[in-house]
Design a protein around this nucleic acid. Sequence first.
DNA 1: TTATGGTATGGTATCGATAACAAGGAATTT
DNA 2: AAATTCCTTGTTATCGATACCATACCATAA
Lengths: 332, 332
Amino acid sequence: MADVAARAGVSTMTVSRALKDGASIAAETRDRIIKAVEELGYVLDQSAGSLSSKRTGFVAALIPSINNSNFADTARGITDAFAETGLQLLLGYTLYSVEKEEQLIETMLRRRPEGIVVTGGRHTSRGRRLLEQAGIPVVETWDLPQTPVQHVVGFSNADAAASLVKYLYGKGYRRIAFIGGSTSRDTRGADRRAGYEAAVAELGIGPGRVISFGTPPISMQQGGEAVVRLIEQWPEVEAAICVSDLSAFGAVMECQRRNWLVPKRIAIAGFGDFEVASCCVPSITTIGVHCYDIGHKAGNLLLRAIEGDRTGKVLATETIITDYQVISRESA
Amino acid sequence: MADVAARAGVSTMTVSRALKDGASIAAETRDRIIKAVEELGYVLDQSAGSLSSKRTGFVAALIPSINNSNFADTARGITDAFAETGLQLLLGYTLYSVEKEEQLIETMLRRRPEGIVVTGGRHTSRGRRLLEQAGIPVVETWDLPQTPVQHVVGFSNADAAASLVKYLYGKGYRRIAFIGGSTSRDTRGADRRAGYEAAVAELGIGPGRVISFGTPPISMQQGGEAVVRLIEQWPEVEAAICVSDLSAFGAVMECQRRNWLVPKRIAIAGFGDFEVASCCVPSITTIGVHCYDIGHKAGNLLLRAIEGDRTGKVLATETIITDYQVISRESA
DNA sequence: TTATGGTATGGTATCGATAACAAGGAATTT
DNA sequence: AAATTCCTTGTTATCGATACCATACCATAA
């Protein structure tokens, strides 16, 4: 910056002003500085700037997996909410592990984000403490935690799964199974399973038939293998709810391969309304979650909270409950 | 840090040493400091550290889309290559636009990454200049640029598409079409199309039949719409190559919906070997690209280059050509 | 006993920008 | 004409850590 200043015949302070908008500077001087910047190929050093201004200009978001278009949509929603602000989103991938999440929280906090969005309401105790003590706005998403850290934008995965059970019940299915991963690492997956079990019990169509298979997130392939196991273990089964559309798709395709008609031999439902669910033949009944919306609302909430922190008025803790609905298609 | 130092009865310098490994410090002192750190809930400020040490500890990677599992795999490959180093990956999404890429390059460079990975070999002229002048190692991936900026890890998309045409030709197909996006925004998509056209010309089975539809990246849905247009426009068509597996999947499903047998009525091939291609019925013939490998090799190359920069020996510019192959399945 | 070397720690300068305040000059008001 | 205001620019201190060098201390060797 000193080089640029020398070339333009001004002080570094003036260069600094020329490079940010909203500062008072003569148009002529600014042009001269911009010219010098371009001639020298100078790029602002933001880490130095942040140190001084105490604004790093980014927000951290932790999502389970890069490979899941639901979370990708949420990330897009957050990004879009920041469009006008110059705030950047820094993504981290927890791979559905709270330990990895804890580690990422710390890594992120070291870079001093202005806010943080996490997926889910369960964390390691140290992870939670880090979030609480960070002194920045925190939003938990995709879940309704019992005792939130601060703000929440989400829905009850258990209730959503239960509503799918009730939908199937309404369609006349009684022997309803659940296909999910083999550990409770994926806490939202575990919640969906719990919701399934509660609904089955409530409707008096128990006991539950649960196939636990593969490490979350379970793949299409694993969904296919799981449905085969399911039918081997409980041949009387009439319908299956899969923990996500990806496994549901794998299951539907495997049934097709084996000439098990869907939904006649077995009805299959998914979760998340991925694109594959609407495209595939037969199309897949699922729960539509407003992924983008979750992100967008979380982003806006964070913006208000950050703005509040800056101006001294702390925003009251908010919980925003988002919508979901059963999307009825051919597979169930 | 001063608070921690005071509490532990040492200087900040000693605290700094306690918090990084490899520094000489008495075990007892370190324990005392760690204790103080935990009691105070202190988290290191990395932006200040980077300013001083001139090491930001992260590498930038620009990929077209978060929603494409191919690039996600590449990102995973890069991350894995960094596993032992403490280097972090910062992802940016260009949405298949070189203008957006240019903007991201600048945003990233402001944070002073230690290296940068970009997807593709085409950039705006300013984007290219920024990369050249950044003074850090640069790797271009997923392409073989005519005049690389520095290092390259990729393959020829045109040749890969051509090899798919030849595969179909070998299977007896002569009237072969190409389905892709309607702009050349997706430069790799455009290269694949060029490779298709070259191969069709070379084999004397022209003219090419090209359906251009939708803004890249084209979706499953759009693949389905495109195949309908294709058959309306050229009913004699025998086979179609889609720009990616996602559109190929959409096309296959739409055919199924309309009772156009695949591959009997029309053979369909994709590109990229996404999971959906192997799972779906009929399974989809495609080009298998070693996405993870591209990332892993790019990551390792970058590591060596960064190490070289630090120790003064500049690494000679490398071009690593990765493998691909036609994966023969049911759809073609 | 003295010399030598290694280890642990502290002091100071510095990384590259920006905040806060100061000041000079032109434009406007009284 | 003097006073006031606004606009533009510069000076200095500072953000929070680490590099670099200095130093105290202890252990071992001569």
